[in-house]
């Protein structure tokens, strides 16, 4: 693995590494070593499917990835910032605790599964079950913003957090295709730009208009999203949004008898 060069950028140094053909275990071991040495900025070039990038770093780092990182990018991540110039695979942000992931492309299935905190921004589309089982507690609140559309079961089992779906690549003719949206949801909220039909939603999900506090949350996060991808936030925000919320705290409370 070739450490190409270390460039001084302001007060911090950026370490560039070409990781073509490097085994994931060696790559992650090196990241851990750099992290323990206090290196804060790393650029990974020619990433081809290496898994678990960003997991278990002793100090938060900023990692820029060129190429296609493998599954479980940022698994259990605790505060690092990852930017991917390319697509992310399955399990991006899996059980993430804190940090920030920005994907300049698509992401695969179970984006942000069981996330407990941190933010994920995906410019394009994502796969199945995005935001499944996200959680929140007090100030720990994961946020996912998806620029394109999602596959089925988005927000399944959601227990907390915020999921924003912008559908920027949709039009009058091309609408959301996802079904079972928010099925089993019992916490958190989904903001969706445009509209979905009732049959596309899980039976636990209600539709409401946004209130002022919703717009504040939306505004902040869409602004941040737009800033990463050079988009005009106001143009995104001027469109109609709906809010999807869990209708009951205990969707299955009456399913059982003792």
């Amino acid at each position: 693995m070739e450490q190409l060069l270390t460039v001084k950028k302001g007060n911090s140094r950026t370490t560039k590494i070409d990781v073509e053909g490097v085994y994931y275990r060696d790559l992650n071991a090196q990241l851990r070593e750099l992290s323990s040495k206090g290196i804060q900025n790393v650029q990974l070039l020619n990433v081809y499917g290496q898994r678990y990038i960003g997991t278990n770093l002793s100090q938060p780092m900023e990692i820029e990835i060129s190429g296609t990182p493998g599954n479980d990018l940022g698994f259990l991540m605790n505060g690092s910032k990852i930017t991917v110039y390319g697509n992310a695979q399955d399990g991006c942000g899996n059980t993430m605790d804190d940090g920030n992931i920005v994907i300049h492309g698509h992401a695969g299935d179970i984006l942000g599964m069981s996330a407990r905190g941190g933010k994920i921004f995906v410019r394009d589309d994502v796969g199945y079950r995005a935001g499944i089982h996200m959680k929140e507690y007090q100030d720990k609140k994961p946020i996912i913003v998806i620029g394109g559309t999602t596959q089925d079961f988005v927000g399944e089992y959601m227990g907390g957090g915020i999921l924003i779906i912008l559908g920027l690549n949709l039009s009058e003719e091309k609408t959301y295709r996802a079904k079972f949206v928010g099925t089993g949801m019992h916490g958190g909220v989904i903001y969706l730009r445009g509209k979905v039909e009732q049959y596309q939603l899980g039976k636990e999900v209600g539709i409401a208009e946004l209130e002022e506090k919703d717009y504040r949350v939306l505004h902040d996060n869409v602004n941040e999203f737009a800033s990463y991808f050079n988009l005009e936030p106001n143009k995104i925000l001027e469109h109609q949004f709906i809010k999807l919320f869990p209708r009951w705290l205990r969707p299955y409370g009456r399913l059982y008898t003792y």
Partner: peptide, 14 residues
């Protein structure tokens, strides 16, 4: 607080 889900909700594991 330990599970990070709302109080009083059923904690369901998929």
């Amino acid at each position: 607080s330990t599970r990070m889900i709302p109080m009083g909700t059923d904690a369901l594991s998929p």
